[in-house]
Computed example of a mutant assay.
Amino acid sequence: MIHDFYIDSVNFKEFNDWKQEKENGLNGKKKNEFQQKSEDKKYEEWLEEIFKIPLAQKKKEILNKLKEDKNIDDFCPKHEELQNLPQNSVLIKIFFTLKRPYTSKDEGEFHIIDGRIFENPIVRDKFTGLPMVRPSTWKGHLRFAADKVEWNDENEKKKIIRWLFGSEPGDVDALKGRLYFFPTFFKDEEGKDVITPLDRKTRTPVKDKAPISIEVMKPGKSGEFYLLYVPYPKGKDFKENEIEEDLKFLAKALDLMFYTYGFSAKKTSGFGVIERLEENEIEVCPRDRKDIFSILYTKQNKTVKDGA
Rank of each mutant, 00 (worst) to 15 (best):
307 G>M: 12
174 A>R: 07
79 H>N: 14
281 E>T: 03
201 K>S: 10
148 K>F: 10
174 A>F: 07
158 K>D: 15
200 R>H: 13
240 E>I: 06
78 K>A: 00
279 E>Q: 12
257 M>S: 08
84 N>D: 08
21 E>Q: 12
116 R>K: 13
101 P>D: 11
85 L>H: 07
25 G>M: 03
68 E>L: 14
100 R>G: 10
168 E>G: 00
114 D>S: 15
11 N>D: 15
43 Y>C: 04
227 L>T: 02
26 L>A: 09
211 P>N: 10
26 L>F: 05
95 F>L: 07
162 R>C: 05
152 N>A: 08
144 F>E: 13
259 Y>S: 11
234 K>G: 06
92 I>R: 03
174 A>H: 04
119 E>S: 13
61 E>T: 09
75 F>L: 04
33 E>W: 09
101 P>L: 09
149 V>Y: 08
13 K>C: 10
268 T>L: 01
237 D>H: 04
76 C>A: 02
99 K>M: 08
302 K>M: 04
184 T>N: 02
17 D>A: 13
27 N>E: 08
78 K>I: 00
181 F>K: 03
69 D>Q: 09
119 E>Y: 11
292 I>W: 01
261 Y>K: 10
236 K>D: 10
132 M>Q: 06
157 K>V: 04
106 D>T: 08
259 Y>W: 01
177 G>V: 05
269 S>L: 12
44 E>W: 01
208 D>W: 06
128 T>R: 01
144 F>I: 01
9 S>R: 13
192 K>L: 09
122 I>A: 02
31 K>L: 12
252 K>H: 05
38 S>G: 07
232 Y>G: 01
37 K>N: 08
286 P>I: 09
22 K>A: 07
30 K>W: 02
299 K>G: 10
303 T>K: 15
120 N>V: 02
180 Y>A: 07
264 S>R: 06
259 Y>A: 13
235 G>I: 01
232 Y>S: 03
194 V>A: 07
144 F>D: 07
43 Y>D: 00
129 G>V: 00
185 F>E: 03
